[in-house]
Amino acid sequence: MKKPTRAKRILIIGHGVLGGDVLDFLLQSGMDLDVIVAGRNSEMVLHRVNLARYTAMNLGFCPAVEIVR
């Protein structure tokens, strides 16, 4: 019998070019992930996460993302 698997938890630190691209990729992948984004400026992180969420939703995915400071 197979054990139920938990979603993998991924922490992205920073919302620059690399962090933003990784965030976009993960949210559009359709994988069962717990994505957490951290950054110094929580308002800018929120804007970047919302952009990535809207893009993923337009492609048919509905990801959840947690923002921490």
Rank of each mutant, 00 (worst) to 15 (best):
M1I: 00
M1Y: 00
M1Q: 00
K2E: 04
K2Q: 06
R6I: 08
R6N: 08
A7R: 07
A7K: 06
K8A: 06
R9E: 03
R9P: 05
I10K: 02
L11E: 08
I12W: 02
I12V: 12
I12H: 07
I12T: 11
I13V: 10
G16M: 10
G16T: 12
G16E: 10
V17P: 03
L18N: 00
L18S: 06
G19F: 06
G19D: 11
G20S: 09
D21M: 00
D21Q: 04
V22C: 00
L23K: 01
L23Q: 06
F25S: 00
F25P: 00
L27K: 04
Q28R: 05
Q28E: 09
Q28T: 07
S29E: 02
G30T: 05
M31R: 09
L33P: 07
D34Y: 03
V37A: 05
G39V: 13
G39F: 13
R40T: 14
R40V: 06
N41H: 14
E43G: 11
M44Q: 15
V45N: 11
L46M: 15
L46C: 13
H47V: 15
R48C: 10
R48I: 11
R48M: 15
V49S: 11
V49G: 13
N50T: 14
N50D: 15
A52T: 11
R53K: 14
Y54Q: 09
Y54E: 07
Y54V: 04
Y54N: 09
Y54P: 01
A56S: 09
M57P: 01
M57I: 04
N58W: 03
N58E: 02
L59K: 05
G60Q: 07
G60C: 08
F61M: 09
P63C: 11
V65F: 08
V65S: 05
E66T: 07
